[in-house]
């Protein structure tokens, strides 16, 4: 992946507006957080291949870390802490936030075709 280029990501997000699209969204601090530090908590959430339709999409942020919000007819999807992006297999938009060690902390991915299993 490469550092987010705000204008390019905005333009890519807009290509998915008013279409039925597949969403992958996750946050994680790993399965070992409380094993390596007994004061830490394991937290995470994961949705893969839910289909949604959004009418507006916006990337916000300045410089290194970004937030993306998607407005649906009856609700919202958002992710924060996003740092990197790539277009995968020519049409899938992958956004992710990595920590200093390069570990994934959050991801938001949008595609017109389903993600692998």
């Amino acid at each position: 992946m490469k550092p987010i280029e705000k204008e390019n990501v905005q333009a890519t997000l807009e290509r998915f507006i008013n279409k039925d699209v597949y969403i992958h969204i996750e946050t994680t601090n790993g399965a070992y957080a409380s094993h390596f530090n007994d004061k830490a908590y394991n937290v995470g959430a994961y949705v893969r291949n839910a289909t949604v339709r959004f009418t507006q999409a916006k990337i916000v942020g300045d410089g290194n870390v970004y937030r993306v919000g998607l407005k649906m007819e009856k609700g919202w999807i958002y992710a924060e802490g996003l740092t990197d992006w790539v277009i995968h297999e020519e049409e899938k938009l992958l956004l992710a936030g990595h920590d200093r060690e390069g570990r994934l902390m959050v991801s938001l991915q949008i595609s017109e075709t389903p993600f692998d299993y």
Partner: peptide, 18 residues
């Protein structure tokens, strides 16, 4: 598939990792 480590420096993403 759900690993957090993506290489150091990173060379994998959620879709290529498996």
């Amino acid at each position: 598939e759900m690993g957090r480590n993506m290489g150091s420096p990173t060379f994998a993403n959620r879709e290529t990792l498996p």
